[in-house]
Simulated assay, not measured.
Amino acid sequence: MEIKRLRGKIKVITGLHIGGGDDTMKIGGIDNQVVKDVNTDLPYIPGSSLKGKMRSLLEWKYGLVGISGGEPFSPKFLEDAVFNDENMVKKALIVMKLFGTTLTEKDKKVLEKKGLSERDLGITRVSVSDCHLTKEMIEAKKKGRKLTEAKYENVIDRCTGTAKHPRQTERVTAGTEFEYDIRVKILPGDDEKELLNALKEALELVELDYLGGNGSRGYGRVEFIEEGE
């Protein structure tokens, strides 16, 4: 087994909101805060948020979402007639190899019918670390750079054309940079290039879509700047 790495920087292009819990209500405070490190109070991107977005978009790109009905793809869905196409089976296996799947007895029987081995599936191969601020960003903050901002959101009354129900959403500011570190296990018999290319494709899809919440409002546009494996 080998472990390969994809690492680099995530540059925030438009305000980024990945919510963090706040068990206190502050009068006049921000309603929707971003997630922050409990010790440093600095914003970060949870690895689970990035990994979940990568998997979701890759399943959309590979045509798996309509078949699974919105569930994470698993072997039981291989019974669908669309998987008479070997190319579709190949795409489904890439997703399940990379991101893992829970193998039920039904899943195992479906794999057996398809002549596929359960050896390659199961536990996720991909590990996505939490993405913390770059050293340059931390230094910039010490010099006064703002890493977050409060943006007002509201609803427009269709009859009067006026805004109502204002609320504040906290966002990571445009230009902020985080470090990402993605690791993937390559087992004997794997097509290493195929798996790494799928991960890179998933990152490209996140760039084209968005990360975090409120993407339809223009939030969460990001750029991945790769620094090598």
Rank of each mutant, 00 (worst) to 15 (best):
Lys4Met: 12
Arg5Val: 04
Ile10Lys: 00
His17Leu: 08
His17Thr: 02
Gly20Val: 04
Gly21Cys: 12
Met25Glu: 14
Ile27Pro: 14
Ile27Gly: 13
Ile27Trp: 13
Gly28Asp: 09
Gly29Val: 08
Val34Asn: 00
Val35Glu: 10
Asp37Ala: 07
Asp37Phe: 09
Val38Met: 14
Thr40Gly: 02
Leu42Trp: 09
Pro43Ile: 09
Pro43Cys: 04
Gly47Thr: 03
Leu50Gly: 04
Lys53Gln: 01
Met54Phe: 09
Met54Glu: 08
Ser56Phe: 15
Leu58Gln: 02
Ser68Gly: 01
Ser74Ile: 10
Leu78Glu: 03
Leu78Gln: 00
Asp80Arg: 03
Val82Ile: 12
Phe83Asn: 05
Asn84Tyr: 14
Asp85Lys: 10
Asp85His: 08
Glu86Ala: 15
Lys91Tyr: 07
Ala92Gln: 04
Ile94Lys: 11
Met96Cys: 06
Phe99Ala: 00
Phe99Cys: 00
Leu103Met: 03
Thr104Cys: 11
Ser117Ala: 03
Arg119Glu: 12
Leu121Thr: 02
Gly122Phe: 11
Thr124Ala: 15
Thr124Gln: 10
Ser127Asn: 14
Leu133Gln: 07
Glu136Lys: 13
Glu139Tyr: 07
Ala140Trp: 09
Lys142Arg: 12
Lys142Trp: 07
Arg145Asn: 12
Arg145Thr: 12
Thr148Asn: 02
Glu149Val: 08
Glu149Phe: 01
Tyr152Leu: 15
Glu153Pro: 06
Glu153His: 13
Arg158Tyr: 03
Thr160Lys: 07
Gly161Phe: 03
Gly161Thr: 01
Thr162Asn: 14
Gln168Lys: 15
Thr169Gln: 02
Thr173Arg: 14
Gly175Lys: 05
Glu177Gln: 13
Phe178Thr: 00
Ile182Leu: 05
Lys185Gly: 08
Asp191Cys: 06
Asp191Ser: 10
Glu194Val: 10
Leu195Arg: 10
Leu195Val: 02
Leu195Ile: 09
Lys200Ser: 07
Lys200His: 01
Glu201Lys: 13
Ala202Trp: 07
Leu203Cys: 00
Leu203Lys: 03
Asp209Thr: 00
Gly213Asn: 07
Asn214Ile: 07
Ser216Gly: 06
Tyr219Glu: 04
Glu223Lys: 14
Glu223Val: 15
Glu226Gln: 12
